[in-house]
Simulated assay, not measured.
Amino acid sequence: MRQTNIGRRRFLVSIGAAGVLLGGLGVSPAAAQGNSSPRQRNFRAHLTGDEEVDPVETKAQGQMLVTFDDDLTELSYTLIVANIDDVVAAHIHCAPAGQNGPVGVTLFGGGPTSASGILAKETVTEPNPGNACGWTSIEDVYEAIQSGEAYVNVHTVANPSGEIRGQLG
């Protein structure tokens, strides 16, 4: 799908904001890719409609930035979106690429709201209670991301099962 110049410009502004946020978190681009220490603590995902199962045709895009503390007891995240309307929820799910899975951590709930910029930013200390992923601690979430078994998606009124998605890695 062809993107308009305005949409592209908005997304580039969002990506610039991600760089500023990473810098504000004390995370270098190399660290965001896991190159700063033996144990990777920083993860990211690029969210698009093409990554949904089944793919969704949309101009919406997003970036998810995740950082774990040294003890793996806190997960800090920033979810940035562009060109998306009527958002109702966003989650970290447990499943490998190409498969759908249950919700493990709620990132955003509310709306519906339209957004271009930061949709959600928070630090969490536990996954959703009783989640179907079986995650009982932030370390469980870390292990799932580390093994390629976690993705982020953003749900909308038009696409309640997910409009954009990206595998965390």
Rank of each mutant, 00 (worst) to 15 (best):
A132R: 09
A120N: 12
G110N: 13
G110T: 12
N83K: 10
D70Y: 02
E143D: 09
T67E: 09
R8T: 14
V105A: 08
L47D: 03
G169R: 06
T106G: 13
D71K: 11
N128S: 14
S116M: 06
A30R: 08
V20Q: 12
H91M: 06
E57N: 15
L75T: 05
P55N: 06
G169H: 07
E122C: 10
S76R: 15
A45P: 00
C133M: 01
D69I: 13
V66M: 08
S114G: 14
I118Y: 01
N42K: 00
D69T: 06
D50I: 13
S28D: 02
R10Q: 15
I6Q: 14
F11D: 10
T4A: 03
S28W: 00
R165P: 02
V20S: 06
V152D: 01
I6C: 06
L25D: 12
A95N: 07
D70S: 10
G166P: 02
I118S: 03
P55G: 03
R39C: 04
T78W: 05
A89N: 15
I92W: 08
V56D: 00
T58L: 08
H46C: 02
C94Q: 10
L25S: 11
D86W: 07
L107K: 02
V154W: 02
D71E: 12
D85G: 12
M64K: 07
Q61T: 13
Q63S: 08
A17R: 09
P55I: 14
A144M: 04
T113I: 14
S36V: 11
P96A: 12
Y142P: 01
Q33K: 14
A115E: 12
A31K: 10
E74N: 10
P38R: 14
E149T: 08
V13L: 09
A89T: 11
G111D: 05
G162P: 03
I138H: 02
H93W: 02
V88Q: 09
F68W: 04
D50L: 15
A18F: 03
V154A: 07
